[in-house]
Nucleic acid binder design. Sequence first.
DNA 1: ATACTTGCTGACTCTTTAGTCAGTAAGGGG
DNA 2: CCCCTTACTGACTAAAGAGTCAGCAAGTAT
Lengths: 202, 202
Amino acid sequence: MARPRYRRRKEDRPQEITEAAFAAFAEKGFTATRVEEVARRAGVSKGLLYLYFKTKEELFKAVIRSVVTPRLDALTRTLDSPDSSAEAIIRGPVLDFMKRVPGSPVSVVIRLMISEAPKHPDLVDYYWDNVASRGLAALRQLLERGVANGEFRETAVNELPQLFVAPVMMSIVWGIVFADRSLDTDKLIETHVDMILAYIRA
Amino acid sequence: MARPRYRRRKEDRPQEITEAAFAAFAEKGFTATRVEEVARRAGVSKGLLYLYFKTKEELFKAVIRSVVTPRLDALTRTLDSPDSSAEAIIRGPVLDFMKRVPGSPVSVVIRLMISEAPKHPDLVDYYWDNVASRGLAALRQLLERGVANGEFRETAVNELPQLFVAPVMMSIVWGIVFADRSLDTDKLIETHVDMILAYIRA
DNA sequence: ATACTTGCTGACTCTTTAGTCAGTAAGGGG
DNA sequence: CCCCTTACTGACTAAAGAGTCAGCAAGTAT
């Protein structure tokens, strides 16, 4: 009796909806996910969802942002490390970070970016400005610091930090396409880092 | 006058349609491409398209197959090379092959696979059986041959040929997402091959 | 010429789903 | 307790697009 049919929780709704949307997008991708399905998962009506997000695309962007923002902190925290050797930083926090990515929400975001990039250039800009370019710049800086203090040689890797990150990308794509055929992504990434270090070491 | 409104060209239609579909999918992806758009590009009516392809999905599969099949030959030709050293084969035909992939139709196929894989497990199986597993197996064989004749050491790369191919994947994804921000994919791939060879050389 | 087969057309149907809005009820202030 | 604001609902609309089909006409055989 008198149990209210719903509660007004203006504060919590946006986050609950983006979380539900993230879960749905992770399972089925953006296009294949129905707005009603997101509303159902979030425990609200479709109408309410449209009060908080003007269109399905806006919801999409909000989801991307909600995943990317906290990761940014993790990334910067990883890199403003103590002043140990560049190699120690790479073998420590950087390697850990890389190994965590394939199983993380970032992996979902990358899948969404690959599928939706051509239709959402502004989102690509956002991702570039906030994640890709920063991450690559930080990596380049780390490598150059290694060169400066005599640990590393000057190599093409300095201008191509993408090379550093390639096996992470490979792992993510493998997970998307060949989800069931297992791949030891940790070993893949570790071996690659070993190899790179051997290559660039002075 | 009396120019016939159309010609009957049963033989050529399927290929013309798959070619038009490939071009359309390359630009907009599978889901965003309208069947009518494909028909228009192929210069036929939607009804005719449905005479040759039962559904949009069948058309999709036909497109994938039409790109993959000729590439299979190229791949096998690359690998049943003369009996030079493993390193020479890697630095020659294998490197060439890898450098060509990011700008080729294969790149489009991979984008389509990433976007559509979750909805098309049978297509993933097809791609796995005909491309991925064969390519990786051939690579593994090449590496083991190098080990057998004393060129290479036993390393983790033998069980993880994906590592070999990682920068190609990176280049493809880069091209999809950051199409405009240029990346020297040739140099990326060359450097990576250099690095791998240095790592595995006995 | 005529009859016949079949490659081909394009207007139609039917389903799906993003987005709307008139109305309902939760909850707080007087 | 009543009233007023507004968070919230869910049935509805409108658009889009996959797939169909009755009929048309290109080519062929007689």
